[in-house]
């Protein structure tokens, strides 16, 4: 905290862009994309204005979670290369201002969702914000190496909220979209943490490579990758995806497994990277030789998830008939 207080003595005045950065715009854009897919896949005639309001509420709710996360985690953000430039640790915005912004936007987004759209979606949005801000940020993140596995639920819920906004309910297919992101998160995040683990170790965050070592992490990435592919193919059997989706899920899944296997057999995460020294300013996502396989899986995991959701979105917008193989 002393470090934070020292940082917060910065005299640079807070600009509106600093407050916008608190909302994690890049995360917001991903949340909007998956929520929109859920909303469209519900195949209900929601009024376009109400649909747009629902997506806006989900985006603002995600932003509010981000602001609360940056307020609570400012002490560890200040110690990590990836996050030390964030507005609170950089001293641009006071922690209390970030917290106030998070609380106000949470209340506005949930109330507007409830009054304008429906209370099932509003309830799910409130649960997601609370889960991310309280269960993940305040509790799991500093306590267990399973933090991102359980906390991943918050990132997986937006398609369910989008579906509920259109439908007023959350059927099994909505939860299947949630399950895909939920099972995808560990392999995606641990692939990243294999080459940024020194950052987490310095901040005292119990990420899997820090607590259990690189070999165990690579093994768990492989197991979660094997678990992931059936979930990704399942929508073609449950009346959600069509032929294009089955092709993308199947072919992409094969590439995913190949990359995960290569990572499993590699030595990624086992050699310290001199660029991760506190004073280093090299590119965070630069690749060192031993971590190339981790970087490849991390990059492909983003592409694969984006392709799956984009294909589902495209199929439903085009009105293609789902396969319903079961």
């Amino acid at each position: 905290m002393a470090m934070l207080e020292a940082l917060n003595t910065s005299k640079a005045p807070a600009r509106w862009q600093d407050f916008l950065q608190l909302l994690k715009p890049r995360v917001m854009s991903l949340v909007v994309f998956t929520a929109l897919t859920g909303l469209v896949c519900a195949d209900r005639n929601i009024h376009p204005v109400l649909g747009a309001v629902a997506i806006l509420c989900i985006a603002v709710g995600a932003g509010a979670s981000g602001a609360l996360n940056m307020w609570w985690d400012a002490d560890i953000d200040a110690k990590m290369r990836r996050t030390r430039g964030r507005p609170v640790p950089a001293g641009k915005v006071q922690g209390s201002d970030a917290a106030a912004l998070g609380v106000v936007l949470s209340l506005f987004s949930v109330m507007l969702m409830g009054m304008a759209v429906n209370w099932v979606a509003a309830g799910l949005l409130a649960f997601t914000i609370l889960f991310y801000a309280v269960v993940y940020t305040m509790w799991l993140k500093r306590w267990t190496a399973q933090n991102i596995v359980i906390g991943g639920l918050a990132g997986a819920l937006p398609p369910v909220i989008g579906w509920a906004a259109a439908d007023g309910a959350a059927p099994l297919n909505a939860w299947l979209l949630c399950a895909i992101i939920f099972v995808w998160t560990p392999s995606h995040f641990w692939a990243l943490s294999l080459y940024t683990s020194e950052d987490y170790a310095r901040a005292g965050v119990p990420m899997m490579p820090v607590v259990r070592g690189a070999a165990s992490t690579r093994r768990q990435v492989w197991i979660y990758s094997v678990l992931l592919i059936p979930f990704c193919i399942a929508p073609a059997f449950t009346g959600l995806g069509s032929v294009a989706y089955l092709a993308v899920a199947g072919l992409g899944g094969a590439v995913y497994l190949l990359l995960a296997w290569r990572l499993f057999r590699s030595k990624a995460g086992e050699t310290p990277d001199p660029r991760n020294a506190p004073e280093a300013n090299g590119g965070l996502y630069d690749v060192r030789a031993g971590a190339r396989d981790a970087r490849n899986l991390f990059a492909f995991s983003i592409l694969y998830l984006a392709l799956l959701f984009a294909t589902l979105l495209g199929e439903h917008l085009a009105g293609l008939k789902p396969l319903e193989l079961l």
Binding site: P13, A14, R15, F19, L112
Partner: peptide, 25 residues
């Protein structure tokens, strides 16, 4: 002063958007 003016304009636009949104909904 410049930073405060920017924050005030952003807040005003946010509130205006919210009012318009409530009206349209």
């Amino acid at each position: 002063a410049k930073a405060r003016r920017g924050r005030n304009i952003a807040l005003a636009l946010g509130l205006l958007l919210f009012v318009v949104l409530i009206f349209v909904v």
